[in-house]
Design a protein around this nucleic acid. Structure first.
Length: 502
RNA sequence: CGGGGAGUAGCGCAGCCUGGUAGCGCGCCUGCUUUGGGAGCAGGAUGUCGCCGGUUCAAAUCCGGCCUUCCCGACCA
C-alpha cells in the first residue's frame, strides 16, 4: 500500500484528499474554497470536454461564449431563480476605483444573460431552435468546499436551448440527460441512475430538473449532471418571444443542462483504491508508462534500445523519431498513442528514480498499463505488461505488443472498471418498504434506498432532518406497480431513490 | 455561518505549558555503491516559525485580531 495515502477504511475523506495530492490533480489556491487544477487534473477535464463537445455537436449544438458579469437586475427577473441563487452570488460593486451604478453579479449560471440575448435573436419560429453550449467558469459562494466536489469557482459546460414547443423542449431535456448518462457510463465507466428530481430538489427556476446520480465507494450519492426543462419561465422573464407558424406571438420554451469539474471528483471516488488514483483508459492522459530496469550501463543501453524497438513496433518509427526530436523533458519521453486525444505512452528514463519508485509514481497517477523491460526480458524478447486495475501481469513477446493488443487490453480495463463500479453500486441499493427499515438503513450506514414514496416538500424536509437522506431521483413516476408510501402509508405508484448526498 | 482540530524547511511532525535567536524523519543537491518493487553510506543546501498588532531587554513560545485548511453541523447546483 502507498505510504502517503491513508486507506479508505481508515478515513475516507482524507483518502480522497490524499489521492488528489499524490496524483497531483489539484492544489489549494490562496483564496478560500478555490483550487488550482494542475496539469494532470486539467488533462482529465480536457478529455471529458473533448468527448462531450463531440457528442453535443453530433446533436446539432454549437459553442458560444457569454460574459462573466451579469447585471444585478437580471437575476431578479425570475422569482425562484433569484431566491435560489442570490445568497450564493459574488457581487462586484466597484470598478475602476469607483462604485458602480448597478452592481454586477459574477455568474453562478447563465440563464439570465443568455435569456436576454435570446430575446434579441428570436423573432420568428424560423429562428428556432437555438442550440448553444458554452464552456465556462462559474462562481458560487459556497460555505463548505471540497476539492472538485464543491469549489467556489468551477469549470463546467452549460447548454441553453430555446424551442417552439413544450414537447420539443422536453425532448431536448431528456435527450441531453441521455447524453450525460451514456457519457458517464461509456466514457467515465461510472454507473449512474437517471431521472427527475422532486420539486424540493429542482433547479431554481426550472419546471422540472432531471439528473444523473452516481454512488461513490462510501455509499454516498453524487449528483453528476443535470438537465432542466425551464418551461416558459425564463422566456417570460426575458421576453423571448416569436411569431409562430400560427401567426400568434408566443414565448419560447427553454432548457439548460450542465456538467462540471465535479466529475473529476466522481471519477476519483468511483474507481480509485488505497494505492491512489485509478483512471478509466478513455480518460487517462497516459495509457501506459514504460519502466526500464537495468544495473549497468551496458544493460541500460540494451534495455533502452529494446524499448525503442518496442515503441516503434507499437507506435511506428515516425512517432518514435518525432518524440526524439520533440522539445520536452527527455527524462520522461512522451510518445503519442492517439494524436487526436493527445493520450500518451511515456517512457520513464529518469535515472534519479529506481524502478520501485517509478512503479509507485505511475500507480498513484492511475495509469492503466505499466510496461516493464529489464535485461531478462530483453534476452527472452518479451516485455512485462501490468494492469493498474488488479496488478495482474502478462508476459508479451515483442512482436505481440501491437496497437490491437494494447487497445484490447485498455478496452478490457475500461469494461472491468465499469463492471466493478456497477456491482458495488448495486450492492449498495436496498429496496425498502417501511419507514422503520428506512431509519435503520440510514442509521447503520450509507447506500441507496429504493422506496415507494409520494414526494412532498414538508415530508422530505422531515426525513432529511431525521436521516440526512434526500430523494436523489424519481425512478418510476406514478407508473410503478401499486405500493405503499414508506412515510405516509398511502398508496403510491412512485418509486424513488433516497441517499445521503455530497 | 456555529462547534472542534490544525498552520514551524518541499512533505509529515517535535519544540510552545515554564519567553533567551529552531530541531527530527522523509524528500532535495553532490559523490560513491546500488537497481525485477518505495535503497545504503558520506557530505551539503533549504525557515521573515500563516499574517497583522500588543506585552517584554528579548516572542515560534504569552495576549488580541485576522487569514487559510481539515472534520462535524446548518446552507446548497
Amino acid at each position: 500500500m502507498a505510504n502517503n495515502i491513508v486507506s479508505r477504511e481508515k478515513d475516507y475523506s482524507q483518502w480522497y484528499l490524499d489521492v488528489i495530492s499524490a496524483a497531483e490533480l489539484a492544489d489549494y489556491a490562496p483564496v478560500r474554497g478555490c483550487m488550482v487544477i494542475r496539469p494532470v487534473g486539467y488533462a482529465i477535464w480536457e478529455a471529458m470536454q473533448r468527448e462531450l463537445d463531440r457528442r453535443f455537436k453530433e446533436l446539432g449544438h454549437v459553442n458560444a461564449y457569454f460574459p462573466l458579469f451579469i447585471p444585478e437586475s437580471f437575476m431578479k427577473r425570475e422569482a425562484e431563480h433569484v431566491e435560489g441563487f442570490a445568497p450564493e452570488c459574488a457581487v462586484v460593486t466597484h470598478g475602476g476605483g469607483e462604485k458602480l451604478e448597478e452592481a454586477l453579479m459574477v455568474r453562478p449560471t447563465s440563464e439570465t444573460v443568455i435569456g436576454h440575448m435570446y430575446a434579441q435573436w428570436v423573432h420568428s419560429w424560423r429562428d428556432l431552435p437555438i442550440l448553444i453550449n458554452q464552456w465556462a467558469n462559474v462562481v458560487r459562494w459556497e460555505r463548505r468546499t471540497r476539492l472538485f466536489l464543491r469549489t467556489m469557482e468551477f469549470l463546467w459546460q452549460e447548454g441553453h436551448t430555446a424551442h417552439e414547443s413544450s414537447e420539443e423542449a422536453v425532448e431536448e431535456t431528456l435527450r441531453m440527460l441521455e447524453v450525460y448518462r451514456t457519457f458517464a457510463q461509456d466514457f467515465l465507466a461510472i454507473p449512474v441512475l437517471a431521472g427527475p428530481k422532486t420539486d424540493s430538489e429542482k433547479f431554481a427556476g426550472a419546471v422540472r430538473t432531471y439528473c444523473i446520480e452516481g454512488m461513490m465507494q462510501d455509499g454516498k450519492a453524487l449528483q453528476m449532471g443535470t438537465s432542466h426543462f425551464l418551461g416558459q419561465n425564463f422566456a417570460k422573464a426575458f421576453e423571448i418571444r416569436f411569431e409562430g407558424r400560427d401567426q400568434v406571438l408566443q414565448h419560447a420554451w427553454t432548457t439548460s443542462w450542465g456538467v462540471s469539474t465535479r466529475l473529476i471528483g466522481a471519477l476519483i471516488m468511483s474507481h480509485s483504491d488505497d494505492d491512489g488514483l485509478v483512471l478509466p483508459p478513455k480518460v487517462s492522459p497516459y495509457v501506459a508508462a514504460v519502466v526500464p530496469i537495468f544495473k549497468t550501463e551496458d544493460e541500460k543501453a540494451k534495455v533502452l534500445a529494446f524499448i525503442r524497438q518496442a515503441m516503434a513496433g507499437l507506435l511506428g518509427e515516425d512517432e518514435v523519431a518525432a518524440a526524439e526530436r520533440r522539445f520536452g523533458n527527455d527524462q520522461v519521453q512522451q510518445l503519442f498513442y492517439h494524436p487526436q486525444t493527445a493520450q500518451q505512452v511515456v517512457v520513464d528514463k529518469r535515472d534519479t528514480m529506481r524502478p520501485g519508485d517509478k512503479h509507485w509514481f505511475w500507480t498513484q497517477r492511475g495509469v492503466p498499463l505499466r510496461i516493464e523491460v529489464g535485461p531478462r526480458d530483453v534476452d527472452s524478447g518479451n516485455v512485462v505488461v501490468k494492469s493498474r486495475l488488479d496488478g495482474s501481469k502478462e508476459i508479451v513477446p515483442l512482436a505481440a505488443l501491437t496497437r490491437a493488443y494494447v487497445d484490447a487490453k485498455l478496452a478490457g480495463i475500461q469494461q472491468a472498471l465499469f463492471d466493478r463500479a456497477l456491482a458495488r453500486r448495486d450492492e449498495g441499493i436496498r429496496t425498502i418498504t417501511t419507514y422503520k427499515d428506512f431509519l435503520n438503513h440510514f442509521a447503520e450506514g450509507r447506500g441507496f434506498a429504493r422506496c415507494r414514496f409520494n414526494p412532498s416538500r414538508v415530508v422530505e424536509a422531515q426525513i432529511k432532518a431525521e436521516t440526512k437522506a434526500t430523494v436523489r431521483l424519481i425512478t418510476r413516476d406514478g407508473d410503478a406497480e401499486p405500493g405503499t408510501c414508506i412515510f405516509s402509508g398511502e398508496p403510491s405508484t412512485t418509486e424513488v431513490i433516497f441517499g445521503v448526498s455530497y
